[in-house]
Design a binder for these strands. Structure first.
Length: 888
DNA sequence: CTAGGGTTAG
């Protein structure tokens, strides 16, 4: 009996030894081969069905991504499986992404009346979360509560995570708040939930809260907070986190480093990002993808493709890499490489992926291979809204609107229309200026409930404005709950387009008070307003707010300054630009032109050609115009010649107009008329207009009358030409003709632009109309005008009454000249500024000859620099002369 | 039980 006991003890001891060594080798098995060997030993010993080993085997196979083997082990014990075995198989399935199966097993287990324990739930909850099965999730949550496991830490963490993945952050927070015990995982689950759902502010807030509670962040915490810093462009917090990573030694964690990499790209800090990547000891596919994608986002497409080639040799790219590089191909319009990548996808056995196919559609469209786009689209097994939208976008880009509307119809029937579709369709109606289509889409938008989407609303504001329905545009604008930068840019452009500059200026001011930062588009939008009001201050303030300074922005700023009366600032911006395109050079040439610096314009033109930038037809308008305003006839004609001979550009009406201007301004009226008669195009009103205004200034009345007749034949809608013609008849004293023209203007429903001038003093704009009597300091201004008149007479000034265009007595004519709006504005400026301060006046029409003379006198008598910008150009009056050299 | 990288539009 004693020996038996001894034997039995020995047997047990042996067993125990066997058990523990088997268990140890099972746990430490690191290859499939080892695992299979240990498995067969377990079978030989008949231990396969033991609760302990079967469970371990199931888990171990799951670790080796072999759920089939896990399943076969479980299958042998399933009729009598206990809770431990059930837990193992559920966990194994969950870890291998077989969530539906895992939930199925949970159901079976409950049916068999096997009571789950606290180890069952985390996996089950995970599966619900992964499947976004909200209903099941709630059932499981109830089960947890019924079993009294509501305060379990692990289950609580899993539930917080589950609600976060459902996007229900309120529920997640409620769960978190109700937990009696919390650890770093609980905080991580909450923080990553906020971060993943784009609630970056909250993610940062809870992160800081966790730090206050003394929780030590780990790699999970950091990689959840980094995207929040990136998203908010919160550089300070991001750098703090980077320091923390270095301090607690998390930088060896790939996920953390990838997070840092991605964040620095979002900060646009390429050097820092590159350093992170280069210093990484271990890199994975995500690291490469983040790098390639980051270069792409910074528009360094060539480099992004080069990195892809570098990666291919070391790492197998995945679908995300492919999509990044395809995007780069699209931007570079590199069809050849695009096709290469497409082939690589086919050969590499990549499963068809909706996103990848969508980008292929877009890439081919950008490379102008519409058929290839359509082929990808037609072959797609399942298309999402993005696929449809991308295809529609292809047709929009290729102006095939019929096909766009066809696809849109199908989308409507299939209920696939989303906000992006609406925006694109709105852009179609904008491009076609089709109000009816626009209104129809507006109705659909309301029906579909997209009328609270900012981008959709912005598009509607734009659409109505461009269709000429400014009132509807403003209505949409006013009904919007939030206005972003684009909203403001759009509404400002809308105001400008409808001619309401005052409202436009008010909008800009409101935008600034609401703290919205301007961008390149803002500069482009306010350009016409700044030049209308010549508000250099407004322009400068906007300029100061620009932080991303690319070529188009620089071009816009050059143009803005030149139109606002600061050639100096234009030159400064031009000099600072490292990259200059045709537009940059052209802007600079026309700036010189406006200030009568023909010589400098010509030099810039030569410099431009020397740096290899090819002039286009706009450049030639600018350079001929510049010559014309400086009296450089020979040079201007040479440019006109060059344009056809050297650059093979067919002159358009505006070029002919420039040449006519060039000749006639220099008094070569007959030559100009001959030139018009010999041109191959039918001369339009602008060409006759150029000649006519020159006739007027040079006093060639005979030709003027002939030309006036030709202008009236054009039946233009621009009142300016009628006014010009009428002025000729006024000079000739043919008042009947004058009245006839005025009548016909009214009959055509046109209105003459009333002349006005304005000046900005101490951040306020003062506007003066011709003969205005109701403005501040009217008395003082009138008195000053009288005094200056007296002084001018002493210097030898005689009024040139030819510039009065009304049938009145001589004395009255003199008075009428005296109240031309620019004279009032100048006098007002003299009164309200310190002695010697330069004045800057703007005028909507061209300066009349008499005012030009008067201003020269004034600049001398009052010792002031006076800059006048009229409808055409700038005149800088100084010491009795004008920068235009009387070419205007 | 918790983390990182991708597509269309104004």
């Amino acid at each position: 009996m004693k020996t038996t006991t001894k034997f039995s003890t020995l047997h047990e001891a042996t067993n125990q030894f066997l058990y523990s060594s088997l268990s140890k080798s099972l746990s430490s098995a690191s290859t499939t081969k080892q695992l299979h060997r240990i498995h067969s030993i377990i079978i030989t010993l008949g231990l396969e069905k033991s609760s302990f080993f079967s469970g371990k085997l199931i888990s171990k196979y799951a670790q080796f991504k072999d759920p089939k083997s896990s399943f076969s082990v479980f299958h042998q014990v399933s009729p009598t499986a206990n809770v431990y075995q059930w837990n193992s198989i559920i966990r194994a399935l969950t870890h291998n992404g077989l969530f539906t199966k895992a939930l199925g097993f949970y159901g079976k287990m409950r049916k068999l009346d096997v009571l789950p324990d606290k180890c069952t739930f985390p996996s089950v909850i995970n599966s619900c979360a992964a499947l976004v099965d909200i209903e099941m999730g709630q059932v499981v949550h109830e089960n947890v509560l019924k079993m009294g496991l509501g305060s379990d830490l692990y289950i609580g963490n899993a539930l917080v995570d589950m609600y976060a993945r459902f996007g229900c952050m309120d529920e997640a927070l409620k769960m978190f708040d109700g937990m009696p015990e919390r650890d770093v995982v609980s905080w991580n689950s909450l923080i990553s939930g906020y971060s993943a759902n784009g609630y970056w502010v909250e993610a940062l807030e809870f992160y800081n809260m966790s730090r206050m509670e003394g929780i030590m962040p780990d790699s999970f915490t950091v990689s959840s907070v980094l995207p929040a810093c990136g998203g908010l462009v919160n550089v300070k917090e991001g750098e703090l986190l980077h320091c923390l990573v270095e301090k607690i030694g998390l930088h060896s964690d790939v996920v953390v480093s990838n997070g840092l990499l991605s964040m620095y790209f979002k900060f646009n800090r390429l050097v820092e990002a590159r350093r992170i990547f280069d210093e990484m000891v271990i890199r994975d596919t995500v690291s490469w993808n983040t790098l390639i994608c980051g270069y792409s986002q910074m528009e360094l497409f060539k480099e992004s493709i080069e990195l892809f080639m570098l990666m291919v040799n070391r790492f197998k790219p995945d679908l995300l890499t492919i999509t990044s590089v395809l995007r780069a191909c699209g931007h570079l319009r590199d069809l050849e490489f695009g096709k290469f990548v497409h082939e690589y996808m086919k050969k590499g056995g990549f499963q068809s992926d909706v996103t990848a196919d969508n980008i292929l559609i877009d890439m081919y469209a950008k490379c102008d291979d519409l058929l290839a786009s359509r082929e990808v689209f037609d072959r797609m097994m399942c298309k999402d809204s993005v696929s449809w939208n991308s295809m529609i976008n292809c047709y929009i880009q290729h102006l095939n609107y019929d096909e766009v509307l066809k696809l849109a119809m199908i989308m409507k029937v299939d209920m696939k229309v989303d906000s992006v579709t609406c925006v694109m369709l709105l852009s179609v109606s904008t491009q076609l200026a089709d109000k009816e289509l626009g209104k129809e889409i507006h109705c659909d938008i309301i029906k579909l409930g997209f009328d609270s989407d900012v981008i959709v609303n912005n598009s509607m504001v734009d659409m109505y404005a461009k269709c000429g329905l400014i009132k509807d545009s403003l209505k949409v604008f006013e009904n919007m709950k939030t206005h972003d930068r684009v909203t403001w840019n759009t509404i400002v452009a809308a105001c400008v387009q409808s001619g309401d500059f005052t409202l436009g200026l008010r909008m800009i001011n409101q935008m600034r008070t609401e703290g919205v930062m301007p961008d390149a588009a803002t500069v482009l939008g306010i350009l016409p307003m700044c030049s209308f009001f010549a508000s250099k201050r407004q322009g400068k303030e906007i300029h100061g707010c620009i932080f991303r300074f690319d070529v188009p922005t620089g071009n816009a700023v050059i143009e803005m300054y030149s139109k606002c009366g600061s050639l100096k600032n234009s030159i400064q911006v031009f000099d600072r630009m490292k990259v200059r395109d045709v537009v940059t050079w052209t802007a600079m040439i026309s700036a010189y032109g406006m200030y009568g610096e023909g010589g400098k314009a010509l030099r810039a033109f030569e410099d431009m050609k020397a740096t290899g930038v090819v002039p286009d037809h706009v450049t030639f308008v600018a350079i001929i115009y510049a010559c014309s305003h400086s009296g450089l006839v020979e040079e201007g004609l040479a440019c006109f010649d060059q344009m056809q001979k050297d650059y093979n550009l067919e002159p358009r009406n505006e070029h002919y107009a420039c040449v006519v201007d060039l000749l006639s301004r220099s008094g070569l009226i007959t030559k100009a008329e001959d030139f018009i008669n010999s041109m191959p195009l039918k001369p339009d009103a602008s060409i006759w207009g150029s000649l006519l205004s020159a006739c007027r200034s040079s006093g060639n009345i005979l030709v003027a009358e002939r030309v006036a007749e030709r202008i009236l034949e054009q039946k233009s809608n621009d009142t300016g030409y009628y006014v010009l013609a009428s002025n000729v008849y006024a000079i000739l004293g043919k008042w009947d003709q004058v009245r006839m023209i005025r009548k016909s203007i009214r009959a055509r429903g046109l209105k003459k632009d009333p002349g006005c001038s304005w000046i900005e003093i101490k951040r306020r704009l003062y506007v003066f109309g011709t003969g205005d009597k109701f403005f501040e300091q009217f008395e003082e201004v009138n008195k000053l005008l009288g005094i200056i008149s007296g002084l001018m007479a002493k210097e030898g000034y005689v009024a040139d009454l030819r510039y009065v265009l009304h049938d009145v007595e001589e004395d009255e004519k003199r008075d009428m000249l005296c109240v031309h709006s620019e004279r009032l504005a100048i006098a007002f400026g003299l009164l309200n500024t310190e002695l010697g301060t330069p004045l800057q006046i703007m005028k909507n029409l061209r300066v009349c000859g008499d005012c030009h003379t008067v201003t020269k006198y004034r600049s001398m008598i009052m010792q002031r620099e006076i800059l006048v910008r009229d409808a055409n150009r700038f005149h800088l009056f100084k010491d009795g002369t004008c920068s235009c050299g009387d070419h205007w």
